[in-house]
Design a protein around this nucleic acid. Sequence first.
RNA 1: GGAGAGAUGGCUGAGUGGUUUAAAGCAGCGGUCUUGAAAACCGUCGUGGGUGCGAGCCCACCGUGAGUUCGAAUCUCACUCUCUCCGCCA
Length: 427
Amino acid sequence: MLDIKFITENQDLVREGLKKKGFEKKVNLDELISLHSEITKLITSTQSKKEEKNRLSNSIKSASNEERPQIIEKSKKIGEELKAEEEKLSELQKKFDSELARMPNMPAPDAPVGVDDSGNKVIRKIGEPTKFAFEPLDHIALMEKNNWGEMERIAGVCGSRTYAIKNDLAKLELAIHMMVLDKLSENGFNIINVPSIAKERPLYNMGYLPFASDEIYYMPADELYLSGTAELVLNSLHMDEILNENDLPILYAGFSPCFRREAGAAGKDTRGLVRVHQFMKTEQFVICKNDIKESEAWHQKLLAISEEILKDLEVPYQVLEVCTGDMGAPKYRQYDLEAWVPSQGVYRETHSASNITEWQARRTNLRYRDNQDGKVKFAHTLNNTGIATPRALVPFIENHQQADGTVKIPAKLQPYMGGKKFIGGKI
RNA sequence: GGAGAGAUGGCUGAGUGGUUUAAAGCAGCGGUCUUGAAAACCGUCGUGGGUGCGAGCCCACCGUGAGUUCGAAUCUCACUCUCUCCGCCA
């Protein structure tokens, strides 16, 4: 959410930001501003009526018996006027709130400008696309060869875009999460395993609602939602709190099962482990001071951690800075990591690191008291993937496959796999 | 699923329709005293909003949302959450 004061005082800047993000037709800035001034006038009027009413009510006890009925009559009359005004006010307020909730965050001034993913900028490539001295298999064939999956059967039981993995691949999935959690723990993150079910408010707080409502599973019998990321819960963990500046930064490594409807992805990646409805994710989440230098520094730190994770996994990857039209509504700046997938001959997204600045904190009402000036301020929040599986298993097993169908385990991961240097091979 | 109790500021906790402008204490912050500190004493101390150049004045908020009333922390209803007990259960 943006500050309405910021919007009214920086209309040109906001208009430019909306255009860059591709939102100029999705929100009505002029209506928002005129609603706000109408609301302000109405608030002033209702408040003076309340003031008058309070005065009359307070005078009743000391009033004489003759005066009393007149005062009550007068107060009733003001009360009726007040009620009419308040009804109108709450109607306008509702409209205003839903319009303001649709306003995206302003992108970083130096973020690459573009309309879709074609505008994303490759910042660097680490490692070379893997070369094979044999004909490499895709991850599905590798799973079949090693008795690592139950992909056909599970679709019949659980529907499309689900997965079941077996044996060493199943262990590998958990081992990678353990490795990542250890790394985050070493970097000062609090490990926290969080629920995958949530109430509506956290979805609004994060910006899932109203922006990505198609993406979310909803359980009407209980009025609960399935979470698509631990970010959802972590962002709301401290909602409505006023933290002490000394408590910041707060670092969370949140692990959770994640659920996504993939409604907009019909026909894409229907086979295999790349895009499934339920997966596991370890998420990095940071709450820091309202200081753009500090949150930008944390953004770089989060990016560096996830790069280190891909390096430890010995998977070739590239770093993208995502352009204004491709980053989501909440974001100020976004980097994606994409790992090399040999069978597809392309880099595929494994990580997404975002600086949200205060946009989420405003929705979440997540604040802290500044030590310097004693003022209450909205925090900055950032998030980044730690690792998401099974998606990350795709580049992992494809890049590390050997001629005999076994898969090499990199040195950093071996302690989490019982010291094994290879998995698979014999069935 | 059944029965009961409860939710008041950073914390503890008083308050059952109008001197409550939410008492009091603790913690915090500023000061006096002191070589310094502690103690003691004095002062200050919630959030959001409206209005004003400003000191200020005003409005709302006692878990959330409605309602009754001239007037609600207090009465009514619904909901949320917490705790205790029973039942079921990985």
